[in-house]
Design a protein around this nucleic acid. Structure first.
Length: 262
DNA sequence: ATGTCGATACTTTATCGA
């Protein structure tokens, strides 16, 4: 069995103790972190290595930044999402871990989407999703066993948010965004949580503002997408809500997926 | 009722991104 966690930590520096203690307790084999918000050299790798993890980081000052932690050795395949040499955001990191290809991603938020004409941010989001689709198609064509995990900034369906009316028009829920997400799934990918669960109220993010956590007004935007070979091995996918309720919490909470074999 | 959080800089308050 291999358990992989994904967690948008909203600054590894601000969240270090919380993340460290959760990793020590939950002990996933692999952890995908997003919004570490620091350059690779500033990432506090050593205390996480003391927990038994190998650490690789695609970092950037102040914004974005993704990292992969793995108890087994890992080899980075790429630290950029192919398709745009001008794109300098640290949002994608892909590595081989044993026979698995594991990708950690922080998909652009895209807000505000603009009215009438799309904003640069929303166009960037849609272009990025198109590039991700191309990357996925390429890896599937090469027959890799792939797991993409991360903050997709996509609310796939109405039941993935507390109140769809609130999210109407938002870049996380716009028809163009959901269509691009479905297009990704239509390559033959399996969204792990919905393959196993059909409950409402399964959220991974609650805004800091407006008492969203206290009122349980959340959205499900952190996902795992599995290639067919990975999906055949899917055992479990769950959301650990506990970290969102802790002091100094990230606005996201971890999601864990387990696949059989190694 | 204006009720969030984190990073940054020509910084100690304003701005941006989420």
């Amino acid at each position: 069995m291999v358990t992989i966690a994904t967690w948008n930590v909203n600054s590894i520096k601000a969240r270090f103790q919380t993340v460290h203690d959760w990793l020590a307790r939950a002990a996933p084999d692999i952890a995908l972190l997003q919004e570490v918000k620091c350059e690779a050299a500033a990432f506090p790798a050593e205390p996480l290595e003391d927990l038994g993890y190998n650490v690789v980081v695609a970092g950037q000052k102040a914004y974005n930044g993704v990292a992969i932690l793995s108890k087994r050795p890992l080899a980075v395949v790429t630290d950029v999402l192919p398709g745009d040499p001008e794109d300098s955001h640290a949002r994608y990191l892909e590595a081989d871990i044993g026979t698995l290809r594991v990708a950690c991603l922080y998909l652009p938020n895209g807000n505000p989407p603009g009215n009438g004409q799309w904003s640069d941010k929303f166009r960037y989001k849609l272009t990025w999703m198109d590039r991700l689709r191309q990357r996925a198609a390429d890896l599937l064509a090469e027959d890799h066993t792939v797991i993409w995990g991360g903050d997709f900034n996509v609310i796939p369906e109405p039941e993935d948010c507390h109140d769809p009316a609130v999210w109407e028009g938002d870049a996380l829920y716009r028809p163009e965004t959901r269509r691009a997400f479905r297009s990704l799934l239509n390559l033959g990918l399996t969204e792990a949580y919905r393959a196993l669960h059909h409950d409402r109220g399964a959220y991974t993010f609650w805004d800091y503002q407006g008492g969203a956590w206290q009122m349980d007004r959340g959205i499900r935007i952190d996902h795992f997408l599995l290639s067919p070979q990975a999906a055949d091995r899917l055992v479990e996918c769950r959301i650990d809500r506990a970290p969102r309720g802790e002091p100094k919490a990230s606005d996201h909470t971890p999601v864990l997926v387990t696949i059989e074999g190694d």
